[in-house]
């Protein structure tokens, strides 16, 4: 088992205490609610997409440090990106936290700090909840559950 600090890196602790873009986006073009029935974590993601570009993105909800930090880092990483870029980043991020042979690519930027969760299979869904919810919002589904 890895050290606690490999999981709870400073960036994660900081984003948990001071989440970025923790707000509603009005008006928004896309929205979805995510729910992790295992732990009761909830997240709402709202975005305004203009010409295929994520102009604004915000999240709200209640969750553990991993899910809060992941949502916060995600919104920071996605503002100004195209929808296609966001999907590609989701795929890369998903690999990072679920595959042992994945390595933090430079393209992932700060969200690579979440790589430590792959040593904690019970916590992977905490890290991916915001991303699954984003995916649902972009696919115009209202709700997603990590079940």
């Amino acid at each position: 088992m890895s050290d606690l600090r490999d999981l709870y890196q400073e960036v994660i602790l900081d984003h948990n205490k001071h989440p970025r873009n923790f707000r509603s986006v009005e008006p928004h073009s896309h929205q979805a609610n995510g729910y992790n029935p295992l732990c009761g974590d909830r997240v709402t993601i709202q975005l305004s997409v203009e010409g295929g570009v994520i102009a604004q993105i915000g999240f709200q909800g209640d969750g553990c440090a991993i899910s809060t930090a992941s949502a916060s880092l995600m919104t920071e990483a996605l503002e100004g990106r195209t929808v296609e870029e966001a999907q590609a980043l989701f795929d890369r991020f998903h690999d990072l936290v679920t595959r042992d042979d994945a390595y933090p690519e430079a393209a992932l930027g700060k969200i690579a700090v979440l790589a430590g969760v792959r040593d904690y299979p019970m916590r992977v869904k905490c890290a991916t909840l915001a991303w699954h919810t984003l995916h649902a919002a972009l696919a115009e589904k209202d709700e997603v559950s990590t079940e």
């Binding site: 088992m1 050290d3 606690l4 999981l7 709870y8 732990c39 974590d41 969750g63 553990c64 440090a65 991993i66 904690y120 916590r123 905490c126």
Partner: peptide, 13 residues
């Protein structure tokens, strides 16, 4: 305001 899952993971270690 610490989430119980974070408490659980820290205690586990």
């Amino acid at each position: 305001r610490v989430h119980p899952h974070d408490i659980g993971t820290v205690l586990d270690l």
